[in-house]
Simulated scan of single mutants.
Amino acid sequence: MTRLIDLTATLDPDNRTKLPPHLAAAAGVVAPAIEYMHPAEAKGRDEFCRYLGCRHEDMPYGEGWGAEMLSDMSSHCGTHVDAPLHSGSASGGAPARTITDIGLEELFRPGLVLDVRPWARPALEITVEMLESAMQAAGRRVQPGDAVLIRTGQERYTLSDPEFFLQPGMSRASTLHLTQLGATILGTDAVGWDLPFGVMARRFKEGGDPTVLWDGHKAIVEREAFIVQQLTNLGALPASGFMVGFFPIKLARCSAAPARVVAFVD
């Protein structure tokens, strides 16, 4: 019997208020703003009557309908799949694909969890050596076509915790190590794939080297893969022997889309 394990974070507009003030402008990445219309309340009743040309007293069971209006929502909201276009206009020597260029068969892949928690540290790089140690612990190496899910432990934090934004991050070298082994989907339980923005900005300011800026994502320019961020519930998975479906909304010509990510575990 197959168990379905949801790896998707809930898009709750209440989370927008938990962002620190300096990140308030990024609220659309956390969750959409949602206007709720309940069938028993005025907005749901008024909408029903407006569309159907009736009065409140005419409504069946005395109620309208439930509906919601979503706004201020990024294509990179919550658990989402990055298309190659997010990293640059080219990927692997070809024009970068958008989210609607990716076939469903490319988004249903064998999963491999690499648990780097014993070695990874806040706001520091996840190294190739850490990935190799995690593969050894998992008892399986990355194989061509794998979806590699990096378990950093960040899912234990909420938006109210400062540690949420101090994730261990992947670098160009560690990202390319996985794609060169054949991984086509790269997932993480952290808010971002790379080191925190502040850490990258400081490294650039100190050394003047632009290659330190967003180098994990920029590695996709060299070798195509799809990055998935803000996964949850990785602790419910075995290290391997399961399939994962990453099913993004079909947003035409976009660089990413929110997705429902589900593991299929026998």
Rank of each mutant, 00 (worst) to 15 (best):
A31W: 04
A33G: 03
A33K: 11
A33Q: 11
I34L: 13
I34A: 13
E35H: 08
Y36D: 09
Y36R: 12
Y36C: 03
M37K: 06
H38Q: 05
P39R: 07
P39N: 03
A40G: 03
A40F: 02
E41L: 15
K43N: 09
K43R: 15
E47R: 14
F48W: 14
C49T: 04
C49W: 00
C49F: 00
R50A: 12
R50T: 03
R50C: 02
R50N: 04
R50Q: 06
Y51N: 08
Y51G: 02
Y51M: 13
L52Q: 04
G53Q: 07
C54R: 10
C54E: 07
R55Q: 13
H56T: 00
H56V: 04
E57D: 15
E57W: 04
D58M: 02
M59I: 06
P60G: 01
P60H: 01
Y61E: 12
E63A: 08
G64R: 02
W65Y: 07
W65D: 07
W65E: 10
W65T: 06
W65A: 09
E68T: 11
E68K: 10
M69T: 12
M69E: 10
M69G: 04
S71F: 09
D72L: 07
M73I: 14
M73L: 13
M73V: 14
S74N: 14
S74A: 15
S75D: 15
S75E: 11
S75N: 15
H76S: 15
H76P: 00
C77I: 09
G78F: 06
T79C: 11
T79A: 09
T79M: 08
D82W: 01
D82F: 13
L85D: 08
L85M: 12
L85W: 07
L85H: 06
H86P: 00
H86R: 09
S87C: 14
S87M: 12
S89W: 02
S89P: 00
S91R: 02
G93A: 07
G93H: 05
G93K: 04
G93E: 06
A94F: 08
A94Q: 13
P95E: 11
A96G: 06
R97K: 15
T98M: 10
I99Q: 06
I99R: 06
T100M: 07
I102F: 04
G103I: 00
L104K: 11
E105S: 13
E105N: 09
E105P: 00
E106S: 15
L107G: 10
F108H: 14
R109P: 12
R109E: 12
P110A: 10
L112N: 12
V113F: 05
V113P: 05
L114A: 04
D115I: 07
V116L: 01
R117D: 03
R117L: 02
R117Q: 13
P118F: 01
P118V: 01
P118A: 05
W119M: 05
A120S: 15
R121A: 13
L124H: 13
L124S: 12
I126E: 05
I126G: 09
I126N: 07
T127C: 03
T127D: 06
T127S: 14
T127W: 01
T127Q: 05
E129C: 01
E129L: 00
E129A: 12
M130K: 00
M130V: 01
L131E: 07
L131T: 05
E132M: 11
E132H: 08
M135S: 13
Q136F: 01
A137G: 08
A137F: 03
A138R: 05
A138P: 05
